[in-house]
Every structure is written in structure tokens, then in C-alpha cells.
Design a protein around this nucleic acid. Sequence first.
RNA 1: GUCUCCUUCGUCUAGUGGUUAGGACACCGGGUUUUCAUCCCGGCAACAGGGGUUCGACUCCCCUAGGAGAUGCCA
Length: 487
Amino acid sequence: MNVRVRYAPSPTGLQHIGGVRTALFNYFFARSSGGRFILRIEDTDRERYDEKSLQDIHDTFSWLGIRWDEGPDVGGDYGPYVQSERSGLYREYAQKLIESGHAYYAYDTAQELLSAREEQEGKGSGYDRRFRDMPEDEKEEYRNRGIQSVVRFKVPLDGSTTFHDSVLGEVSWANEDVNPDPVLLKSDGYPTYHLANVVDDHLMEISHIMRAQEWIPSAPLHVLIYRALGWEPPEFCHLPLVMGDDGQKLSKRHGATSLLEFRSAGYLPDAIINYVSRLGWSYDDKREIFSTAELEELFSLEKISKAPAIFDYKKLEWLNGVYIRELSSDALYDAVLPFMEESGTVGNPPTDDHARILRDAIPLIQERLKYLKDAPAMLGFLFGEPGAYSPEDLLPKKLTVEETLGILQAVKPMVRVVPDMSDDENEQKFRSMADELGTKLGNLLMPIRIAITGSRISPPLFGSIRLLGAELATERIEAAINLLKSQ
RNA sequence: GUCUCCUUCGUCUAGUGGUUAGGACACCGGGUUUUCAUCCCGGCAACAGGGGUUCGACUCCCCUAGGAGAUGCCA
């Protein structure tokens, strides 16, 4: 079969995890089956339309490195790929449905529908179909009153509709449980999702409709529309939902909603792709790490699960660390630099000196970085003052002010020559000094660490001193000595 | 309310009638280590419940419960 799948976002909000997951599954299915991946913009809701959202779609997927084979910006043989540019088509098919008796004009006002819904108080028996069988002369009165019409689909009152779903198998619905006579064409002349999606998927020769499970109740309706138009529906493939940690559909409450927020939080696109791809899909009982290239090859419909998945930030954090560690030094430098600039830790662009220091500092922080965003805090002491600390912070456990003072004074001349020696040589030297002072290496190094970095947690000491320079390092030791003396 | 989908460790999942129910994250211990992190070793922890079918059910069927989704001139 010739696989053609689409991601069809509506530009009414920023791209979020759920949408991206749907896009990714479509994309990987297309790639792994030698098919085509299509982007279609479903901008039929003119009230919620938002220019920024359209830009966000492009920014998001360009950041992720996902490209479509056909779409508004790249063209293709089935365009236009923006629904607002296809309005004539939808009107044409709505007209056909009316002519064939599968649809009808209705003249309810928005206000009437709203209050009718409220009256039902969630008991929701749905629309009462009052225009469905109304004689033309009676409808004429509504027209004369100037009420705008919509076109509604005539859902069969009995019988049932069956469709095949790659994930769920055979699904059968009683037609009486299908949404009663939904609107196909709105009063503003634009189609609803139901009409547009059927017309476009057919015209664009979409082979598989991969979308979230929230669409399951609409599927029988869509099948009915395909049939009414004399078309064969594509294969369906309803993807399990992605939930927040409270088990509800992922939404704004659950932290970073927009995908680009993940970028500014310091996630790597590959980590996101890897993580999101494993939400509702698996390969075997061993592998967790998949590159985009591997997913393009290995993804398969059969391994999609039915149950909803909860988005686990902890596991994503771990994966992000894994991907950060796999980066080359140069790549990590490039990834970290914007965060250093944005935080003001270095200039934009950085001085040559700062660029050099940052480049050399990368290996020191690579294995301790969970998010790119953490880099400025880890390295701040190299580009400015160390973090503030109190005299007590300098004291190793169970050591007095005097003892610590002694350590710092003994160690000061050694710090000056740290950059001239290897880490091993330094360690040996400090170790014998510790022996001499009758203390542990840790007790010797911790006060220096605090003095140099301002924190008990830091990159490896000798490397840090090397990057800071003997001069500054010594000054900081002195400052620490003076602080203790003032006690 | 109604309709529909779903149900293996806390989380993501492997598993397609016979397994000590496997892996990963998280968590808890231990080791390596100049702090942190990495890394290594170990541990905790699951088939929602009840009926069937079967020599045998996590696997098949039914019911119950729980969760979720839909119920718009939004997608």
C-alpha cells in the first residue's frame, strides 16, 4: 500500500506534547513504510485563528528537525495544504450531500443551541434535529427572517457503522449513538472539522488517519460521510492519549505546555523525540534509546499500545542527560552557549577569552548536566564572582576555624601552581599535604572549593582552578582566609 | 446522565495458554570518586476484582469496579 499520512494541526494554540506526539507517530510511520508525510493546516476556525500559532508550528518542527514531504511551505501535488484556501471544495461537497439527501439546511441560532444545551444539563441527548424533516415552505420562513443557515449531516437513525482501526481492531457503533446531525458547514461558510477532514483526506489520498483517541467518537460519523460521498474511508489508527501526572489529558496545568518551552528549559530535541516516541509505542523489552534515524526505520503500527500514557518528567530528565552526555564537546558548546548568553553569564557574543574558557569547561560539566539551562549556574564562578558564602560554609565537618585557617594557608601556595600540573600530579601533592596535616583529602579540598566556586557542589576542583587561572584562584583563597580571620 | 475506549511494578513498558512475569525511569541500599554528577553492583515493587473456557490462564470470553475521552456553527 502507498502510505500517505498527515499531521493536521489547527493554528489556534501553541504546539504541545500531545500534538507533537501525533505528528511524530505519523512522521515515523511514513518514513518506516516508505510513505509520505504531509502537513495540513486546519484553519477553519476563524475566531480562534492565531498567526503566532502558525509560526509556532514551523518553529517547533524545525527545532525538532522534522520535515514534511508535502505542505504549505514545500508544496506538493495535492495542494493547497491550507484549508482556508480550499473553501470552495467544501461548499461543493456540502452541496452534493444536500442534493443526495445526506445533509440539510438548519436555521438554529447559536444562542438557541447554547441554551438548549444548558437546559439538558450535561444529560446531553444532543441536538434535536428539528430541521431534518421540515418541509421547504416552512424553512422558507426562517430564510425570510434572515437567519443564516448551516448544513447538517443526516446521521442515520438506526443501523450501525463499523470501521477498522490498526490499534483497536474492529470498532462498531450504533448510529443512534453517533453525534446527532453535526454541522458540516458553518454559517460563516467555513467547514467544520468533520467535513473538511473527510474531504481533504480523500482528495489528498491519505491512507491512514493517525490521530489521538479523543477522536474515536467522531470516527463513525466520518465513515458515514465518506460513504455518503461514495468514498472508501482510509484505515484508522487512534493513538492513546498522553496524560499529565494527575491522569488527566495533558494541559496547561501540567507545567511546560508549549513544546518550545522545553527548548528554553534546556531540553535537547533528540531527547524529546526519543521520549515522546516511547509514549504509547515500544520496540522490544530492551531498548530505551532510539535516535531519530532509528525511529525512522523501526517504527511500526503493531507496537502501538491502547492504554493512555502519563508524561513522566523524571524519565525525560534522565534521557536528556543521556543525550547531553552523548554530545561531542563542540556540539555541547554550541548548545550551551545561548543559555550562557541569555543568562548574561557571558556576553553576546562572548569575548574570545570567555569563549575559550567555556569551551574548556564543557568537559568538566558534561556528565553533570541535566538541562542545558543549568550550565550558567554551574559555571558562573568562572566568568564572575563566586557565589556568596558564609564563614561557616568554609569549615569542613568537625573542623574549627583555626584548623580550617591552617589548611587554607598551607594550601594557598599550592593553588598557585595547580594549573602547571596534571590532575593526577595535583591529587598526589594534595594528598601528601593532607597526610602532613593529619586530615583527609576532602577536608583539604572542600574549603578551597568553597573559596573558588562559592559552593559545596562544583565541577572538579583542579580543572576549575586551571580555567580560572592561578591569579584569581589565589585571590579567592586569600579572601576566604581574611573572612575566617575576621571571625 | 449517555455512549465509547482503556486496565502488568509509583511511571513508561515487554509479554499473544505452560516464564523464578523481563527491562527502563523513580526510589532505597552499597561500591568507585576531591564535592556533585557519571559509572558499577544490589534491593523494593505489578498482572484491578469476580466468574467462566481449558489439563493449565497475565494471556481467550462475560460481568463488576476504576480511569479516561466524547457528548460544540473547536479542532
